[in-house]
């Protein structure tokens, strides 16, 4: 497993984010995890309006302000300065996590170190060394109607990130419903990875060889087509 093919054909982070954005319905309330998932907000299909939630107490925030115009009381969960859109709201942390755990968010999109075929997610700790930090990750995997993951299909060393069982410390048990990777779109159904879309340039066998658990196929696998940018 060299990973060479993967590196040649894989989607960029922006393209993975674009694909995930296509599944967000008009009127959806959405939380985007820190890092890679944040880019999803940029690829909203025209004509759809999603409302973005941040853990530290804003609904309907927008892009970063121009440099020099930051208000450091107006930041997102990644502690980056943001702006407000018309119809924004502020609230305290207990209300913010009531929105999360209480089933009020339509979609949460998170990053991952590993995702298991039963929907377990590991995305907060790579082991015992250093300072542990969890933030809102363990809350966000509970309560949203859909919990999706955005990730490279394999690690930088070419090891599968989609696995039978997570080896790293868990963030949540059986919580992930869909995975958008640099090669494919995969649902988690009844304890299995169900392949929905894959890049036309990769064969099923090769995709399977880059995946740490069996890829099930139910009917046809659609082509994963994403614009170049």
């Amino acid at each position: 497993m060299t990973g060479t093919t993967h590196d040649d054909i894989k989607l960029s982070n922006a393209q993975i984010a674009w694909r995930a954005a296509q599944d967000i319905a008009d009127g959806a309330y959405v939380n985007l995890g820190i890092g890679l998932p944040e880019a999803v907000a940029r690829y909203q299909p025209p004509g759809r309006e999603a409302i973005f939630h941040t853990e530290n107490g804003i609904l309907n925030f927008g892009e970063a302000p121009p440099e020099g115009q930051e208000d450091w009381d107006l930041i997102n969960a990644g502690k980056k300065a943001v702006t407000l859109k018309p119809g924004a709201a502020f609230f305290h942390h207990a209300d913010s996590f009531a929105m999360v755990r209480g089933g009020h968010l339509d979609v949460a999109i998170l990053g991952a170190y590993q995702v298991a075929q039963n929907g377990d997610l590991a995305n907060w700790s790579v082991g015992a060394r250093g300072v542990p930090a969890v933030g809102g990750a363990m809350d966000l995997v509970h309560g949203a109607k859909r919990v999706a993951v955005l990730t490279e299909h394999v690690t930088k060393k070419g090891e599968p990130k989609l696995v039978e069982r997570c080896a790293l410390p868990l963030t949540g048990v059986g919580c992930v419903t869909r995975v958008y990777t640099s090669l494919a779109v995969i649902d988690i159904e009844n304890g299995r990875f169900m392949l929905r879309e894959k890049l036309p340039a990769i064969g099923l066998e090769e995709l399977q060889s880059l995946t740490g658990a069996e890829l099930a196929v139910d009917g046809t696998v659609a082509d994963l087509i994403v614009p170049e940018f």
């Binding site: 942390h93 913010s96 996590f97 999360v100 755990r101 930090a133 969890v134 990750a137 809350d139």
Partner: peptide, 9 residues
Amino acid sequence: LVPQGTLAE
């Protein structure tokens, strides 16, 4: 170390 929503609650 406490998850953020648990800390708030």
